[in-house]
Design a protein around this nucleic acid. Structure first.
Lengths: 210, 210
DNA sequence: GTCTATACTCTGATAGAC
DNA sequence: GTCTATCAGAGTATAGAC
């Protein structure tokens, strides 16, 4: 499995996967071209088929990689005993930081998930579905407690979590529309996100309280 | 321009455009097939090229149609003299209703916009850019007033508007992930949106106040 | 205007040399 | 393992009859 090294560059398979990731994420599975992947990896088209039999197989590998990195320790964090306020802080920080570095990731995940049920299944494989349920259970308990003590408005863990995710993820999904609509370029968008990192946690906390 | 009627069905061009809309929105421009459009329109493939010279041209027509309906009177409403609270109410209601009926619309808009700068330009043509600026100006005035009177937390119109849009739009973008992750099917998702329509306005209003 | 038949291009996939 | 050359199929676009 481990190549003895000495060949050109690092591990070829890894280079191909890296290039594939870039191309698939930017253009979507339908829009991606094997030729472009080969070019970016610095190898021949035929070699792609040597390592990954078909385009579909390569696409699948890319998707799994993205899904693994997209739902990182964050779910674990959300299921932890940390307070809701702390979870908001950490979630906002983690996602705004992460997604800033990967402009096309959200678009890719959203469009692939919508168009291929297989993708969704793969996304929740390897016990991640159970992890999601744990998050919901934990949030439900914390929210219920807050409501009982009269310091939180009535809501459900699902609504809360989706709104939290929405506030962090959506700006990147709609990035070109926002940038053009509000009338600032790439630098302006970065500033927008920077400010958002400061403001959003307080915004969400106010929304939760009574 | 107006066909004398008498031919099969209603206006053929309109039927083609309708079918194209369905197929492009569901599969994206790259994933769409002219054959499928022809089938759904009940005509031959060649006829598509008779009315719209190329696939790209047809895709463009579909995009313009979607962009027109996607940013409807809502921008106008947001620029009006209505109070911020009222704007929240109307925006949430309008978008949750509209998007419930068009499951794939958000995914389509987001992915097309991300992958084709032309799309973004067309989106903001016909004076819509100016309209967006008017919205920002009006919101800035209203928020500024609220802050001065000490009843609103400090924020910018951009942050507010994006968060509002995010809370309404994102659930549909992430619909398959949410449905699978939270563990309910199509009916469960509808219930989720129904509840959201009730809760979200109050949630957002709380977030705005001091 | 609408159809059938077909041309042409793009691209994913394979064969086989090195 | 990696390359060159080539095939086969899908899919867009056109020609031309009706």
């Amino acid at each position: 499995m481990v190549k003895p090294s000495g060949q050109a560059g690092k591990d070829t398979k890894a280079r191909i996967l890296e290039a594939a990731d870039a191309v698939f994420v930017r253009h979507g599975t339908d829009g991606a071209r094997m030729q472009q992947i080969a070019d970016e990896a610095g190898v021949n088209k035929a070699l792609l088929h040597y390592y990954f039999r078909t385009k579909a197989e390569l696409a699948e590998a890319v998707w799994r990689g993205v899904a693994s990195s997209f739902v990182p320790g964050v779910l674990e964090m959300m299921a932890s005993d940390a307070s809701l306020d702390e979870k908001i802080d950490r979630f906002v920080d983690a996602y705004l930081t992460r997604l800033s570095r990967h402009p096309y990731l959200v678009t890719y995940v959203v469009s692939e998930a919508a168009r291929s049920p297989d993708r969704v299944r793969a996304f929740y494989s390897s016990g991640r579905a159970e992890q999601a349920r744990r998050v919901v259970r934990k949030l439900r308990a914390q929210i219920g407690e807050g409501i009982k003590e009269g310091r939180m408005a009535r809501t459900t863990p699902e609504q809360f979590f989706v709104t939290l995710a929405a506030a962090c993820v959506y700006p990147f999904a709609a990035r070109p529309l926002i940038a053009a609509g509000i009338g600032f370029g790439a630098k302006g968008f970065d500033a927008f996100i920077k400010r958002r990192r400061r403001e959003l946690p307080a915004f969400l906390k106010r929304a939760l309280r009574t």
